[in-house]
Design a protein around this nucleic acid. Structure first.
Length: 285
DNA sequence: GTACAGGCAGTAT
DNA sequence: ATACTGCCTGTA
């Protein structure tokens, strides 16, 4: 178990587009995890959360997963088998549902530096300041505090037209219409259907939330990069050839095909494919 | 200037 | 049902 934590490299997870609010100061990585700041370093530095929370790293880094069994399962695919070996520090992380859904609603039609900018601005404005090692951080704002903000205030965080969607998510959480506890217990299909009801949440964002925060490891989010990977390496999944843009039908077809092919841990496989596609592909950060 | 970036909802077929 | 289009904002 401990060796897994030691082999974790936050930079890989950030570049795999699953978390956005991690930054490196000196030799240490700091991350915003909901209402807490977490700190991660190699060896002696270990892991710490502020305020302290027992077993926080087990949860965050999914040390409760049977990673051996998962890797064995997804390694039935030859490409994934190769990538698992190539990127040993890459891990799927377990996020807090609220931070996760707000993050990915902001992620639509933009890029990682912009997402980071938006989320940081929201935290600075609506989060709580916390000093760790003399560095000031801001916790991720609660749905309640986001809901109290006006559309204009959210726009001032650089959200643009996404402000309306962020507000809709906050209202969903406050009203109880969006119940993450219930979604965790529901099946993948049921939970996805519920998420798709929320304004601003489509196929891709729903799958991200399901995979990263609602324990649906079969979820297989398909963005432009995964679509390219599927077109390049898994052409047989396609009914016919198509370009970069994904229609709803194509998304469903590919997503279901991928879940069938990669199995119940398809989401893990997706992380490796995504990271691989971004390698040397003109990253802008 | 303009193309583009990790989608979405609204509208037209 | 399926395809097309506009959209905030920042960068190359």
């Amino acid at each position: 178990m401990q060796s897994l934590l030691q082999s974790f490299n936050p930079a890989l997870s950030i570049n795999s587009g699953q978390v956005f609010l991690w930054e490196k100061h000196g030799d240490l990585w700091y991350g915003i995890h909901g209402d807490r700041i977490v700190r991660f370093g190699k060896d002696d530095a270990g892991f710490q959360s502020f305020p302290e929370l027992k077993s926080c790293e087990q949860k965050m880094f999914r040390l409760d997963d049977d990673i051996k069994a998962i890797v064995a399962d997804i390694s039935r695919d030859a490409l994934v088998r190769r990538l698992v070996k190539a990127y040993p520090g890459l891990r799927l992380m377990r996020q807090e549902p609220e931070q996760c859904i707000f993050s990915f609603v902001c992620a639509s039609n933009t890029n990682i530096p912009m997402i980071r900018r938006m989320l940081s601005a929201m935290a600075r404005r609506f989060g709580r300041p916390v000093k760790v090692n003399g560095i000031e951080f801001f916790t991720f704002p609660s749905a309640r505090s986001i809901n109290k903000a006006t559309i204009d205030e959210l726009c001032a965080c650089g959200l643009g037209y996404r402000a309306k969607a962020v507000k809709a998510v906050a209202e969903g959480v406050i009203s109880g219409r969006l119940d993450f506890g219930a979604l965790k217990n529901a099946s993948y299909e049921e939970a996805k259907k519920e998420l798709l009801q929320i304004y601003g949440v489509g196929n891709k964002i729903a799958d991200c939330v399901l995979l990263f925060s609602l324990e649906k490891l079969e979820a297989f989010p398909i963005d432009i990069w995964i679509a390219r990977a599927l077109a390049g390496h898994y052409r047989w999944l396609h009914e016919k050839q198509f370009g970069d843009k994904l229609t709803a039908h194509q998304y469903d077809l590919l997503s279901e095909g991928a879940r069938k092919h990669f199995g119940r841990y398809a989401g893990y496989a997706q992380q490796y494919l995504y990271y691989h596609m971004r390698q040397g592909a003109g990253k802008k950060w």
